[in-house]
């Protein structure tokens, strides 16, 4: 599903964000990506949805060779990957419904299907009743649930979540985690970067720890392992 072989990423300013990472993430896995700030977690995730290109090494996502991908093909790879951010990244002038439907308009789905599927997903994240609200009218947790709805509306095989609970209080964070588990249960692979020790230690999953651009730990039912 996601396979990295000796991946190096060096930015133009000379920083080595990743220094020879080899990882294999299988279909339907749930993986926590942990490590100090600046360790290379974000770069790891950006490579998966091809916001960055590896400097060296082989990276395959859903069978696509990311390093050799033609720019024209990028959108089609991304349609199979849902991305969730700490800051939600919703379009402020679109309603909840429009924000989610947008991801389906992009793949030129028929209007009727867009409407049906969007409402289904909003129901799943528990925001069906707020479909006509604007993002600014929602709480942080609700906004994150909209962004999750947008990420999953096209049934992607991979969900990449960069600190999805970073801006949320513990209780709301647990709600979001329950949602991600549900999505994982329904068949999507989930790669989630996090600094949230409680979540990692209570919802035990595979943990990949990155430090200084290297994988230092990879455990099947790991712990957070860092003191904050």
């Amino acid at each position: 599903m996601i396979e990295m072989q000796d991946i190096w990423k060096t930015y133009v300013d000379g920083t080595h964000a990743l220094r020879g990472v080899s990882v294999r993430i299988d279909r339907n896995e749930f993986v926590y990506l942990v490590g100090p700030s600046g360790a290379g977690k974000s770069t790891f995730m950006k490579l998966i949805y091809r916001e960055e290109v590896p400097t060296k090494g082989q990276l395959s996502v859903n069978g696509f060779n990311i390093g050799k991908l033609k720019p024209r093909k990028i959108p089609f790879v991304r349609r199979n990957i849902g991305v969730i951010f700490q800051d939600f990244r919703l379009l402020p002038k679109l309603t909840v419904f429009e924000n989610v439907a947008f991801a389906m308009e992009v793949i030129e789905a028929p209007k009727r299907i867009i409407k049906k599927r969007t409402m289904e997903v909003l129901d799943l994240v528990g925001l069906k009743h707020k479909h006509a609200s604007l993002p600014a009218q929602l709480s942080g947790g609700e906004q994150q649930r909209v962004s999750i709805a947008r990420a999953i509306v096209n049934n992607p095989s991979v969900i990449v979540a960069d600190e999805p609970t970073g801006n949320l209080d513990p209780e709301t964070s647990m709600e979001i985690m329950a949602l991600l588990e549900e999505i994982n249960f329904r068949g999507s692979t989930i790669v989630m970067a996090t600094h949230n020790r409680d979540i990692v230690n209570s919802l035990r999953k595979r943990v990949i720890a990155i430090e200084n651009g290297l994988v230092v730990r990879d455990e099947a039912r790991g712990e957070y392992g860092y003191e904050i």
Partner: peptide, 8 residues
Amino acid sequence: IMKLVGAT
């Protein structure tokens, strides 16, 4: 965001 959700 448009690019992220796979818009050409």
